[in-house]
């Protein structure tokens, strides 16, 4: 079972999908979302992209814990794991 997901690459794809006309700094795992220049509305859409492509649902209370791109990965892995165990 391979649950490796390249969160950084996906995030980069999504951010340009959501904000077509903007330029963003290079995305890294440690990148703080608040410093990227994408607001929570854009961020929500990115989360929506992850949900759709990975077939998971990220609960609202988990959203509040996300600060970096790496945090998204943690949350996603958690959800994937609980999905697989169900």
């Amino acid at each position: 079972m391979n649950t490796q997901i390249d969160t950084v690459k996906l995030f980069t794809d999504y951010i340009y999908k959501v904000e077509k006309s903007k330029q963003f700094p290079t995305i890294t795992r440690d990148a703080k979302i608040s410093s990227l220049g994408i607001d929570s509305l854009g961020m929500m859409e990115i989360i929506g992209c992850f949900e759709d492509d990975l077939g998971i649902v990220i609960p609202d209370d988990k959203l509040a814990t996300i600060q970096t791109v790496g945090d998204i990965e943690k949350v996603i892995m958690g959800q994937m794991a609980s999905k697989l165990s169900n």
Partner: peptide
């Protein structure tokens, strides 16, 4: 539904 649900999709 949650506003987050709407904003995500």
């Amino acid at each position: 539904m949650s506003p987050y649900s709407f904003l995500q999709r």
